[in-house]
């Protein structure tokens, strides 16, 4: 059990935070993330549970996280990396984790992040005919959009 944690600690250029005995955060640079994922997969972290993005608008960054899980060690490793908000480009992980393919499609649609090497990114996935900025970004105002595009029903007696 201890062995794998030590191995994770030795990953190149990674900042390790052990939040709980079975939950480890690994923060890496953007360039290292594919290599880190690959080494983690070799260690036995076979399952990519979720890959998604947090919009850190104050820092001008997108935080991309990969939640990995290992059947053997029963540990969750969460790999995090940051890219610039102005020019968000990441590299695809679908050669390592096949399920990343669809997560990346979702990310690229919802956040407008370009994923290099994933040919399906950029095609419409969940949304259809979307013309505004990518909706999951923090500067997209959902309430404003919906009141501009849809008409609300007002019940009788309500002040308009």
């Amino acid at each position: 059990m201890m062995g794998v944690v030590d191995k994770i600690k030795e990953l190149d250029g990674a900042k390790i935070t052990i939040q709980r005995e079975n939950r480890i955060f690994v923060d890496v640079d953007k360039d290292r993330v594919i290599g880190t994922l690959y080494s983690l997969k070799l260690m036995g972290f076979h399952q990519l549970s979720v890959q998604n993005v947090v919009d850190r608008i104050k820092d001008g960054k997108f935080e991309i996280f990969y939640v990995l899980y290992s059947h053997e060690y029963k540990i969750n490793v969460i790999v995090r990396t940051w890219v610039d908000r102005d020019n968000p480009v990441i590299e695809t992980a679908d050669k390592i984790y096949p399920s990343a393919h669809t997560w990346e499609r979702e990310i690229s649609e919802m956040f407008g992040i370009k994923v290099e090497g994933n040919e399906d990114c950029g095609k419409p996935f969940i949304l259809e005919n979307w013309k505004d900025i990518p909706p999951m970004r923090k500067d997209f105002d959902s309430v404003k959009y919906s009141s501009e595009h849809f008409v609300f029903r007002h019940s009788e007696g309500e002040n308009e």
């Binding site: 990519l48 979720v50 393919h101």
Partner: peptide, 16 residues
């Protein structure tokens, strides 16, 4: 909450 991301099992099961 600042961000909540949901992982549904069907996401992987369907597309992968």
């Amino acid at each position: 909450p600042y961000r909540v991301a949901v992982r549904g099992a069907s996401h992987t099961h369907m597309f992968t």
